[in-house]
Every structure is written in structure tokens, then in C-alpha cells.
Design a protein around this nucleic acid. Sequence first.
DNA 1: GGATGATCATCC
DNA 2: GGATGATCATCC
Length: 226
Amino acid sequence: MDSPKTIDELMVRAESMSGRSIGEIAQLMQIEVPASLTRKKGWQGQMIEKFLGADSGNLSQPDFSLLDIELKTLPIDYNGKVLESTYVCVLNLYNNLDDETFGCWQLSAVYRKLQHVLWVPVARTAGQSVTEFRVATPFLWRPSEAEMHLLKMDWENAIELVSLGKIDQLNARDGEVLQVRPKAANSKVLTRTTNRQGQLIETLPRGFYLRPQFTQQILAQNLKLS
DNA sequence: GGATGATCATCC
DNA sequence: GGATGATCATCC
């Protein structure tokens, strides 16, 4: 599918998925559905990207580059409860002190990606096959000033610890809405960072994630509007 | 039962 | 390894 040229075009495509099962959408695209997501964790998100014509691949930029919109699928149950946190992007641990943009929120990948998001909630229940998962109502979201402030606070706190070489003090308990958790193939993967003395060391790669309570509120706001 | 830390697939 | 896409699995 070509990349959509306008927001309207994107939303028409997104809305065409509403109420359809994953099996139906996969069939339209002639893609085989895995029996389980255990070994295909990103499969659903990538299928929906393809269906909507996302064009960024694995570049570090919003999925729809022309529109500057990021796509996120959101796993929910049939009561509308958010089931998982939402991965945003990697946390750059290699803080080059010469890089004055390192601590700049508005230049960060988190800001860039979250300033405009197309959420595609997908409902599922335990024991259900992936084919039976069902797309709920996709919606566009821009963080409110208050939401943006919360994100910025959490982001700045994380970045400050990294800048000080205190990545070891940063864990998933930090951050009101945006947290930092491991993001790697396994716990033995290493990436470069610096310690308190500014020496180069290696540590586990981390990523930024939105807490489920936060995305739950985003979902609730949208339900009120529709 | 929810949250934290661990892990899986793919592309380059 | 590092980016994309995330969910799994264990702990508390």
C-alpha cells in the first residue's frame, strides 16, 4: 500500500479496519496469521503498518513521514482495559558531552514520536487465537499541555541521570507516565555509556515506555469524544 | 493481578 | 549492535 498523502486518507484507511478481526485484515492482505504472538511479538503492529502504508521502516522517525504521525497499536481486553505498556523508542545512553542537543526535549525522539499518534486499539482475550483479535476504533491523539508536561518531566529526569552517569539508579519504578525498561534481545546485550567518572562502560540497552495507566487515560478521553 | 525485568523476530 | 515492531514471564 502506498503511503497516505493526507491525514484524511490515513484515517479513512484506519477506520476501514474498525470492527474487523485480525484474521479478516490479514486475509485482505493475503498474509498468514501466526498461531501465537509469543514468537511473533511485533507481527500485529507490522501488519497494521503495512495495511496503512507506513513508510519509515526501522528509521528513527514517525511511521508516516509525510504526515509526521506515529502509529501505535494498543492491546486492550474486551472491556477496554489496556493490557501492556507502549514502547516508544530507545534511550540513547551514549551521552556525548559535546552534544548540546542531548538534553533538549523538543529534539528528542520521544517528543518527535509522541507529538502526534494514531492509536489502533486491538481487543483480545486470554486463550483467543490471533485471528480472532479485533480492531476497535482507531483515533488520532496529540498530548495536551498537561500530558506533554508529564512526559517532559519524566524524560528530563531519565536523561539527567544518564548525563550524570547514573544509569544504574534508573529503573522501571521511575517515571509517572514514561518509564525506562530494558530493550534488548536478552539481559546479556551491552551498549556503551559513561559512568560517574565519565569513563566508558557497557550496560544493558534501555527503552522508553508509556505506562498502561497513561494510555488508559488517552483511550478514555477518546471514548468521551466519540 | 499488576508491574518490572526479560525476551522474540526482522532488517540492516 | 541498534533500530523497528512489541509481548512474555516472573516477581512481589
